[in-house]
C-alpha cells in the first residue's frame, strides 16, 4: 500500500536488501579458499573424466582419440581390475571392522578413570600419527621380517618356524598394519561417544538391576550407534584409497593389489595408459560418493542430537 503511494522502497524490500548484504558478507571470506579448491581439485577431476573417455597412452606417444565408454566396459571384463576390486573390498571391510571392534574395546577401557589416563591415551593414539609409508616400513622390517622381525623372534622363541609374513600373506599383512593404524582413530570416535553418555543413565540401569553385560548391549551400544556409523564411514572412505602401505610392503604382491595400486600400475607405474587408468579411478570416486552420501546422512543425524 505504501509502495503505491510513494517510490521509496517498502519495508519488505529494505529487509530483503539487508538480508542479501548479510549473506554476501558471510560468503565473501570463503571465496579465496573456494576458488583455490576448485582450481586444485575440480579441474584435474574434470580432466581425468575427459581422459577416461579417450585411449590416451604416453609411451609410445599416441594421439588422444575419443573412445566413448569402452574404457568403462573394459573395466568390467578386465580380470585384473576385478581382482583388484575384490582386494579393495576385502581389505577395506576387514580392516574397518577389525579396527572398529578393537577401537571400541580400547575405548571402553580408557573410559574408566585411572592414574596416567591422559598419558596412556596419547600413547595409544600415536600409531594414527605415523606416516603410512613409515608404518609400512616399520612393520615390514621390524615386525614381519623373517630375518629380524619381532614377531618371528617370538615365534622362534617358542620353537616355531619363522614366516616371511609380507610375502606369504601379503593381503593380511597389510590389513594388520591398517588395523594397527586405524584402531586409535576408531577409539577416539567411540570414546567421544562414551563420554557423551550421561552418567545418570548408567546409574539408572544399575538401579534397574541390569548386569554390566545387559547395560552394554541394551543401552551403551545403541547409544554408540551413530558414532560407530561415523567411524565406519570415515574409515571406509580413507581405507579404500590405501596405497602407500602396499607400495612399501608388498609392491602389489599376490592378493594385495587394490584398485588405487592397480590404477597406479596402469598409469605412471609403467603402464602409461592414462585413459583406462582414469576410468578406473572414476569408478572408485563413484563408489566413494555412494558411501559418502550415506555417511553424510549419518553425520547430520549425529548433529541433530539424540539426547533429551
Amino acid at each position: 500500500m505504501t509502495a503505491a503511494t510513494s517510490n521509496a522502497p517498502s519495508r519488505e524490500e529494505q529487509v530483503k536488501a539487508l538480508q542479501k548484504r548479510e549473506a554476501r558478507r558471510r560468503r565473501l571470506p570463503l571465496l579465496p579458499a573456494l576458488i583455490f579448491t576448485i582450481l586444485i581439485t575440480q579441474i584435474p577431476f574434470v580432466m581425468s573424466l575427459y581422459y577416461s573417455f579417450t585411449d590416451w597412452t604416453v609411451t609410445p606417444p599416441s594421439p588422444r582419440t575419443w573412445t566413448g565408454i569402452s574404457n568403462y566396459t573394459d573395466a568390467f571384463t578386465n580380470s585384473f581390475f576385478r581382482e583388484a576390486a575384490v582386494t579393495s573390498i576385502v581389505m577395506t571391510v576387514s580392516s574397518v571392522l577389525l579396527s572398529v571392534i578393537l577401537g571400541t574395546g580400547v575405548a571402553l577401557l580408557l573410559d574408566r578413570k585411572f592414574f596416567g589416563q591422559g598419558f596412556v591415551r596419547t600413547l595409544i593414539i600415536t600409531p594414527f600419527l605415523v606416516m603410512p609409508v613409515v608404518a609400512g616400513l616399520v612393520w615390514k622390517n621390524q615386525m614381519f621380517s623373517a630375518a629380524f622381525g619381532v614377531i618371528n623372534w617370538l615365534l622362534e622363541a617358542v620353537g616355531l618356524e619363522a614366516v616371511e609374513f609380507a610375502s606369504k600373506y601379503p593381503r593380511w599383512s597389510i590389513v594388520a598394519v591398517l588395523v594397527w593404524q586405524w584402531t586409535p582413530f576408531m577409539m577416539l570416535i567411540i570414546l567421544a561417544g562414551l563420554q557423551g553418555q550421561p552418567a545418570s543413565v548408567l546409574e539408572a540401569a544399575k538401579v534397574d538391576g541390569a548386569t554390566p553385560r545387559a547395560t552394554f548391549f541394551q543401552i551403551t551400544l545403541p547409544h554408540l550407534r551413530p558414532y560407530l556409523e561415523l567411524g565406519v564411514l570415515l574409515g571406509s572412505i580413507y581405507l579404500i584409497q590405501v596405497f602407500d602401505h602396499i607400495v612399501v610392503m608388498t609392491g602389489g604382491g599376490p592378493g594385495s593389489t587394490n584398485v588405487p595400486y592397480f590404477v597406479n600400475q596402469r598409469s605412471i607405474g609403467g603402464g602409461w595408459r592414462f585413459g583406462s587408468a582414469s576410468a578406473f579411478s572414476i569408478l572408485v570416486v563413484i563408489a566413494t560418493i555412494f558411501i559418502a552420501t550415506f555417511g553424510l546422512r549419518v553425520l547430520s543425524g549425529l548433529l541433530e542430537g539424540e539426547e533429551p
Binding site: P198, S200, V207
Partner: peptide, 14 residues
Amino acid sequence: IAMVFQNYALYPQM
C-alpha cells in the same frame, strides 16, 4: 528400590 533422577536419565534410544 526405584530411583527418579533429576535429569530423568531415560534411556534415549528406547
